[in-house]
């Protein structure tokens, strides 16, 4: 089985600091891959390298067998990569509908797509995330949860194959978090996308992820099913510290 995305020996250095050190993993079509690690482990840096926001110092990234290591972010978006941000980054001066419309126009190339077609598309995605009634509100006036949903709609409107979700739970209350998770699952089922899910809250990924990759200090610690990773001694040590056995 050919992996959808293959990351080989990814390295990212900022001057003398190695933020990502020789990380390799594969993502297969249709799965949900969890990506965990303590604060400052380099999770977001990996996503930034994979989406082209930061150029990788070394290593190779392949999508459907095509080398995308040197592609620019917009070319990667056209290949079918989309992302959401840890802290929502809306287009503040655009309305919710036009934000998604921009994404629908500029995402993966669709033949003969008119402005009106893109508008219908954008409406569909906005309705999917439950923001249709807020379509004419400026993005800067939306609540935090609505911004998260707008980001999801914006990412989905590019018709991605693989979507990077960066800490969707951050800043949401339990009820909102629950509906956000439900929304991502529904998106995965309805649009047949693959999800790469970065999360701090282990319980979420235990439930949602098919496989989990754990990293610490930029290097891969463990990879496997959620149960395997959670019971991995290195992962527990990374989260709880070296002396965790004494208190276990």
């Amino acid at each position: 089985m050919v992996p959808l995305l293959k990351v080989m020996n990814l390295v990212k250095r900022f001057g003398g600091i190695v933020a990502v050190n020789d990380v390799s993993f594969e993502i297969y079509k249709g799965e949900t891959l969890g990506f965990i690690g303590p604060n400052g482990a380099g999770k977001s840096t990996v996503v930034n390298c994979l989406t082209g926001y930061l150029p990788a110092s070394a290593g190779k990234v392949e999508m459907n067998g095509v080398d995308i290591s040197h592609m620019k972010p917009h070319e990667r978006a056209h290949m079918g990569l989309a992302r959401t941000y840890q802290i929502p980054r809306p287009f503040p001066e655009l309305t919710a509908l036009t934000s998604v419309l921009a994404s629908s126009i500029s995402g993966k190339k669709r033949i003969n797509q008119s402005f009106q077609d893109a508008m219908y598309d954008a409406t569909h995605y906005l309705e999917f995330v439950g923001l249709f009634s807020k379509r004419n509100i400026l993005a800067r006036d939306l609540t935090f949860y609505e911004l998260r949903m707008l980001e999801l709609a914006r990412a989905l409107a590019t018709t991605p194959q693989l979507i990077f979700i960066d800490e969707v739970m951050a800043g949401l209350n339990p009820g909102e978090a629950k509906s956000a998770i439900r929304m991502i699952r529904r998106a995965k089922e309805e649009f047949g996308i693959t999800v790469f899910w970065i999360e701090h809250v282990m319980a979420v990924l235990m439930e949602a992820a098919d496989r989990i990759v754990a990293i610490n200090y930029g290097a891969k610690l463990a990879e496997g099913t959620p149960d395997e990773v959670v019971n991995n001694d290195d992962v527990i040590e990374a989260y709880l510290g070296r002396g965790w056995r004494e208190y276990a």
């Binding site: 989406t51 921009a102 914006r154």
Partner: peptide, 15 residues
């Protein structure tokens, strides 16, 4: 307008 609002995000959605 998207570029004017946030260049990096505009780049990442495929512009």
């Amino acid at each position: 307008a998207a570029i004017n609002d946030d260049e990096d995000v505009a780049h990442s959605i495929g512009i």
